[in-house]
Write a protein that binds this DNA or RNA. Structure first.
Lengths: 336, 336
DNA sequence: TTGTAGGCGTTATCAG
DNA sequence: CTGATAACGCCTACAA
């Protein structure tokens, strides 16, 4: 059973102060004898040592805890990011409190408050809007804030995003080549959301003058919005697109479910592009290009930004852009 | 800017005690005058009020924080569960600290210790082995512990699991009917893992006497283990199975990737069964049956178990079995 | 080397 | 109704 400082002191017939001194690494400074240190360390090695983290937090005004706020954990990108970030933080002695907003601004604000009341040392947030972003910036006051995934602008704080524009350009270019003369459509979800906006921008940039007619929009980025857009497409064209890009996985899921409704299957000759990578994209027989976001790099950059801020140096600021990686799955020919 | 109790007291020329009394809802009990309450509430409504949760925790010896330990967050089942549980806890005033073990017992033990040092009021754990489960049971001592997903036995504590055995029976029965006289294989991952073991048991129960020849095993439940088993199958039979059940999604992903390697596509006539539901299963053209686990019910049961334990009544105990739901996707016929 | 005292912000108790 | 005060356990000076 693990021991408290007091128990160690009595067991070893030493003073509490002495125990604390060596346990807090001030042994040399206070010239504690080597044998005493030995004894203490041996004892701790055997039984363990339990600090009351709460009391410590009260005194030192830091909790060694960080907060992470994401829209949804059930989104693979965010859950992977959370996983990587949690490990990275833990390795550095921080625990992560993860909260999830369901993309609801009120949830989000409540969550920020709840975490701040618990005295988290810093906050990672995927903001849902400019308003809420500013709301947080106000609240956190002297605690570091690192924004993730969405650049709403108007902020001096640290920000980590994927290079969505570049990624979209690359994806569009490659798919254009594969798609031949047929139009390459873009099924965008919520075009107000900065990441989506950037993806659309990259697409536009490559498509040139007037790709507006090839862009479909929906208010949100959910599966049902993907279905909606593909249904719209069918109403207009009475057939499936030769090639299209989905602005995110849920959009793709929705769009493909409509194709399946219409045809009874997903026509394998359609060229499919999407953002975010998932092993199950391999279940499709189509040519599939996916733009993977590098969660490891995200976690690393986000954490270092947080760390420099925590160390009290510069206030965290500056945008980090992380390149995306293209993954291509060749069309699978069913030879029966 | 939010105010501390002290700031409010000085601003309103009242005593700190008075402020606390009304803020903590003891106004009536101590017969604070209505106008004083008014003044305080108005002030708080305007400026807000910030408690120091840390000091409160020190005094009350509770942190209003719960811990959740899962193998991986990037696994959709666990991330969905985490999401539901987090919301459920938050609604009840608890924050959730989520940690992730990568199925590594050492990680897991460290994590339990870290959370306990932070004085979480209770712990939800998906244990990776009987040893670690017992290890935790020792450590938590007087904190409630609720075990999830895996029944290693030998425990009196609360436990929430899916009814894997019943689910497997149902799945096997339905697939048998669809599969005709062809053998229905079972690609199991780590058969030591209780959830997998139960699934296998349900399968065996329906298959009767000697299905051993139709069961493949691997040491773990990762994608590469799925690949391994399907490769073994090919070495033996030089063709794909007519129908098979994967013990979990990663296994399925691995198995199908091998089929794609072998054939260049995933033969649509194969009947596929799997545990855990995912929208992307709709990307397959095959007949697909998936057994969905009901995360809402999990979160609800796990939380109520925790809550009764926290309220100090009975020590948490007893197993809750949550039924699975079968989802069937019809084979999609490609008419080209 | 070791002991002691003050204070972190809250709650609970007791005395006005 | 209101004010004062003792814990909660830890850290840090400072004294011995």
């Amino acid at each position: 059973m693990v021991k408290t400082v007091e128990q160690i002191a009595t067991a070893l017939h030493l003073s509490i102060t002495t125990i604390r001194l060596v346990l807090n690494g001030k042994a040399e400074q206070y010239r504690i004898s080597a044998k005493t240190q030995e004894r203490i360390h041996n004892y701790v090695a055997e039984f363990g040592y339990k600090v009351n983290h709460t009391a410590r937090s009260l005194k030192l005004n830091k909790t060694d805890t960080l907060g992470l706020i994401v829209p949804r954990l059930s989104n693979l990108f965010f859950s992977t990011l959370a996983e990587k970030l949690e490990i990275r933080c833990r390795d550095a002695g921080y625990q992560l409190m993860i909260g999830c907003t369901y993309s609801d601004a009120r949830h989000e604000n409540k969550l920020v408050e709840a975490l701040l009341q618990r005295n988290v040392d810093g906050l990672f947030v995927v903001p849902s809007s400019l308003q809420s972003q500013n709301h947080h910036a106000k609240l956190v006051e002297r605690r570091p804030l690192v924004l993730l995934d969405r650049d709403f602008g108007e902020t001096g704080v640290a920000l980590v995003v994927s290079d969505n524009c570049q990624g979209a350009e690359q994806l569009t270019r490659v798919m254009m080549a594969a798609n031949g003369s047929a139009p390459l459509y873009f099924l965008a979800g919520d075009t107000e959301q900065p990441a989506i906006k950037m993806r659309l921008q990259g697409y536009r940039r490559v498509m040139g003058e007037n790709p507006g007619q090839w862009i479909l929009e929906a208010g949100h980025n959910r599966q049902e919005d993907g279905s909606l857009m593909m249904r719209q497409f069918f109403q207009r064209h009475h057939r499936a697109p030769q090639g299209f890009i989905a602005s995110s996985l849920p959009i793709l899921e929705g769009a493909l479910s409509v194709l399946r409704e219409q045809y009874g299957y997903i026509p394998a000759e359609i060229n499919i592009g999407t953002f975010d990578e998932h092993a199950m994209l391999g279940f499709l027989s189509n040519n599939v290009w996916s733009m993977r976001q590098n969660e490891d790099a995200w976690a690393e950059h986000a954490f270092t930004a947080m760390q420099t801020a925590l160390s009290g140096e510069a206030p965290p600021s500056g945008k980090v852009m992380i390149p995306m990686t293209m993954i291509h799955r060749q069309r699978a020919f069913a030879g029966e």
